[in-house]
Simulated assay, not measured.
Amino acid sequence: MSGSAPAGQRPIAHVYDAAYAGVPNWDIGHPQRAFVQLVDAGLARSPVLDVGCGTGELSLFLARHGHDVLGIDLSPLAVRKAREKARWRRISAQFLVWDATDLAGLGDRGFSFRTVVDSAMFHILSATERDRFVAGLSDVIPSGGLYCVLGDARRDNRSIYGITPRELRQRFARANGWEVIFAFQTVFERQWSRNPAYFIGVQRQ
């Protein structure tokens, strides 16, 4: 799930359903390289939550590597496609239509995750939504758990779109009990382009 939305306005499910009626530019048919490296380094631990999972390529990659995975997305069509992929590929991964800014709701249902992965979801949120999402992570990630986000590098400081390591450090410092343990420059691949990006890992203390 990727793209930009007006500041202060939550992306609407039917907008993403329209995008997933075709093949969105960000749906490249395989996980972003940063997450492959995360798995290769042994930093992903089950159970894993994939926020803004889209049609499920990252979730399915993680499940194929032995992880217990739940993917969530606003778009019912994207989730339906992810479930179809899982069925046809015979991969055990679960998918749920859910708003990632309501992680507290997942916590209320008893869900807990040692790893939360975010492939270009956080970078589209408004400032208020980002704070709500960060606060919600504490409801589903126990001490020692890890949140890993890949997002376009912010190019314009007047815009909220995109991410920077400085912003993530500031937001999680305000939330208390979190530490940025890695942050590096990389790329976010799309079907027809490659954007400068950051890959950032934040651990709950």
Rank of each mutant, 00 (worst) to 15 (best):
M121L: 15
G136N: 01
A173S: 04
R171L: 07
F95K: 03
C53H: 09
G151I: 03
G107M: 03
P47A: 00
I160H: 13
D73T: 10
R114S: 00
P142G: 04
A183Y: 11
G42T: 04
S159N: 03
R64K: 14
V48A: 01
G201K: 07
V180Q: 15
L74W: 12
A78I: 15
R114G: 00
Y16R: 02
D118M: 13
D102W: 05
F133L: 14
A120R: 13
R166T: 14
T128P: 12
A19M: 02
A86C: 06
A93S: 07
Q9E: 04
E57W: 14
A153V: 03
C53I: 08
L60Q: 12
L96A: 02
G145S: 01
F122D: 00
R154D: 14
G144W: 01
R132V: 06
G151W: 06
P196A: 10
G71L: 12
L125Q: 10
A7F: 10
M121E: 11
S126H: 12
I12Y: 03
T186E: 01
V36F: 11
I28L: 07
D68S: 00
V79A: 15
A120L: 14
I181Y: 04
L137W: 02
D50E: 02
D68C: 00
A18D: 01
A175D: 09
R89C: 13
F95L: 06
S143F: 07
A175H: 08
I72N: 09
Q94I: 08
K81V: 03
S2T: 10
S143N: 04
A183S: 12
G29Q: 10
P31M: 07
G162L: 00
S59V: 04
G151E: 01
H65N: 11
L77R: 13
V187N: 00
V23T: 08
F35D: 12
N157G: 07
R130F: 13
F122C: 01
A173Q: 05
G8S: 14
R89Y: 15
P6D: 10
R87A: 05
Y198C: 02
L60G: 14
F95E: 04
D17V: 09
D50L: 03
E167T: 06
E129R: 15
E129A: 15
A7I: 08
S59P: 08
S2V: 09
G56E: 10
F95W: 07
A86Y: 07
E167R: 05
P142K: 02
D156V: 09
I163D: 06
G3C: 10
V97H: 06
Y16C: 02
G144A: 01
G71Y: 13
V23E: 08
T164F: 11
G29W: 15
C148G: 04
V51E: 07
C148Y: 08
E57R: 13
R109C: 13
R155P: 06
P6G: 07
I124D: 11
D152Q: 03
N176A: 07
R132Y: 04
R155C: 08
V180K: 15
M121Y: 12
R89V: 12
G177N: 05
P24G: 13
F133V: 12
G151T: 03
L146I: 02
S75P: 04
R174Y: 14
